[in-house]
Nucleic acid binder design. Structure first.
Lengths: 143, 143
DNA sequence: CACATATATGTGCAATTACACTTACTGTCA
DNA sequence: TGACAGTAAGTGTAATTGCACATATATGTG
């Protein structure tokens, strides 16, 4: 009642492996789709999260993306080098790093969104009968 | 009918972000659990997949773990340095790198499995009413 | 056997991930 | 005002991820 001792049983049972494995596969599909634009799926997520008028603080952005604050800091580097995002100093609190899309970033995002829609349609199709909102709530339960 | 233009809508709709975000959270929980043993969740998955008598080829192992072959190659480095896994040359085909657990690796895995069971129980609890096999099949559909 | 093709793996590069530690600033309370 | 806790962010180090490219070996065909 408590003994999945063989490697295949262990691999099949492991929630962590199962979800990470799928995440790798899905990320690769989105990466492939965005490659012509020179961005990755992770970079798309960052740019998309900045699609608003007000600057977004680094910490708040990390929460939205569910990633460590320091991870986001590194991930911003290439986007900053490519002038897709910019940092604005906040007047109220000089500690916070306010992030905004540049015009170039906004323009790239406009090109990326149709590609994203195609990838999304592919994902929905793979999910078959399971509606995404339902599946998403199951994912959130694990988070 | 086709316009989730705001950042929150986009973030909520994105399958890639949703699954990666959850994968990050889950991996962090398993990483925390394994930390006293000095291994990560990814390293545990590799060790667990080697829990068999015959050597496993690097490529075959990469397929099981759903990761790139070259990623696995790098991930083996710390395990090899710590003498948890070893490489055996295959006689039939000198190209293949046969991977096996060392006695030390096996011993560590024996200590890790009870910890893994606890983390698994926590995951199952989070999933609530959704049985893991069902959720797993949904994940596989996305892969 | 020679050569083309396929297979199994390794390396260069760059991005992604995050813990531990550090720095800079804010707000509060004596 | 001055000390001190709390908050926002950056850095050191190390592992994870994978594409493009290179190397080594095996296999099949003429």
């Amino acid at each position: 009642m408590d003994k999945p001792l063989t490697a295949p049983e262990l691999a099949a049972a492991c929630v962590c492996l199962g979800i990470r494995k799928t995440a790798r596969h899905v990320a690769r599909r989105y990466d492939d789709a965005f490659r012509p634009l020179g961005i990755t799926s992770g970079q798309f997520s960052i740019l998309a999260a900045l699609l608003r008028d007000e600057p977004v603080a680094l910490g708040a952005l990390a929460d939205v993306l569910g990633m460590d604050r320091t991870t986001l800091n590194r991930n911003l580097k290439p986007l900053d080098s490519d002038k897709l995002v910019a940092t604005t100093a906040s007047k109220d609190d000089r500690r916070v790093r306010g992030l905004v899309l540049t015009a170039k970033g906004r323009s790239l995002l406009d090109k990326a969104i149709p590609i994203w829609r195609k990838a999304q349609a592919d994902s929905y199709e793979r999910l078959g009968g399971i509606p995404w909102p339902k599946f998403r709530s199951q994912l959130q339960a694990l988070s």
